Simulated assay, not measured.
Amino acid sequence: MAQSQTEHAEAQLAEIELLLSMFPSQDELEVEQVAYAELRSYVEGTADCPPDTRPELCVKIRTHTGVDVSLSCTYPSDYPAVLPEIVVRCGELSRAQHTCLVSGLRSYLRENCTGEVCVLSAVDWLRDHTHEYLEQDDSNDDDGAKGTTETQIGETFTRLWIYSHHIYNKSKRKNILEWAKELQLTGFSMPGKPGVVCVEGLQAACEEFWARVKVLTWKRIMIRHREDVPLDSVTQNAESLRRFDGFEEAAFDPHGNRGNHMDLGQLFQFLSERGCAQIFQLYFGVEGR
């Protein structure tokens, strides 16, 4: 196991250093320096333990047709045995076009790069193929906000149940609300201690939301549970699978010295009304009542 872990770290470091040589400017490539230094120390033998922080990088790409795209990657500890977490941003893509592009990129990486470092392959793919998705017709797409039924078929509907040690900070709470609405996700956020967030929608949008949230400063945050449903028929579309009508911050009789504890009985009732009662035990280890 240790040898495999070392090999993964060596491959990660080699890829980052290759990318740094190819994109020497910070305007082209940003690397999270603390994680990079920890990774290098581990590979070079000056640190005995694998790094606690995961390497992250962002490549700024200009496609052959002059479109600006950014590719952000976070390495899991066992990358490249598994694919990295990727986030693609492009201001010229509609939501439907963006969803299709991310799906196409993920499919390409799964088919061609599993087991191998893949960031450079992803960069090349985006340079070569982004224009194809910009040319897709989404005239029936409500200005690109939700995506048509046709673009959803073959996609995956996802529901993420996120647990945080606490959610107090007003800026974080505002980000959670704004990002969920921007990405056309439904669900809720419960601030306080503990903090609970549920988002549901197309998989690419949920993963984009998680990629943004997890890099904020937290004492502890994790995906406690996830649900993935393939959208393989016209009758089984994303809208029919949603349990929530919109996205809201939900408070349940706040109490305690700082008003940061919620009435968990009311939370259980809230979840039960939306067919999600089983989630309560996953979060808190006891049956709700």
Rank of each mutant, 00 (worst) to 15 (best):
T6H: 12
T6R: 13
H8L: 02
E10C: 10
L13P: 00
L13F: 00
I16E: 05
E17P: 04
L18N: 11
M22H: 12
P24M: 08
P24S: 09
V34S: 13
R40D: 05
S41E: 15
D52L: 12
T53K: 14
R54W: 09
P55C: 07
P55D: 05
I61R: 03
I61L: 05
T63F: 01
G66C: 08
V67I: 14
D68E: 13
P76K: 06
A81T: 09
V82G: 02
P84H: 06
V87P: 00
C90M: 03
E92V: 08
S94D: 05
R95P: 01
Q97I: 04
T99S: 15
L101Q: 06
V102C: 14
S103G: 12
G104R: 06
L105W: 01
Y108D: 06
R110Q: 14
N112K: 12
C113D: 02
G115H: 03
G115I: 02
V117M: 06
L120T: 07
L126V: 04
T130V: 10
Q136K: 13
D138E: 10
N140I: 01
D141F: 02
D142E: 12
A145L: 15
G147K: 08
E155V: 00
T158P: 00
W161L: 11
H166L: 02
E178G: 01
L185A: 07
T186Q: 10
G187M: 02
S189L: 09
P191K: 03
G192R: 01
P194H: 03
V196F: 09
V199G: 05
Q203L: 06
A204T: 15
A205I: 00
A205M: 09
E207C: 05
F209V: 06
F209L: 04
A211I: 00
V213M: 15
K214I: 04
R220N: 11
H225Q: 13
E227W: 01
R242H: 15
D245F: 00
E249D: 06
A251K: 14
F252G: 10
D253G: 01
P254V: 05
G256E: 03
R258N: 13
N260A: 11
L264R: 12
L264E: 12
L264F: 08
Q266K: 15
Q269C: 07
F270A: 08
C276M: 12
A277G: 11
F280I: 04
F284C: 03
R289T: 12
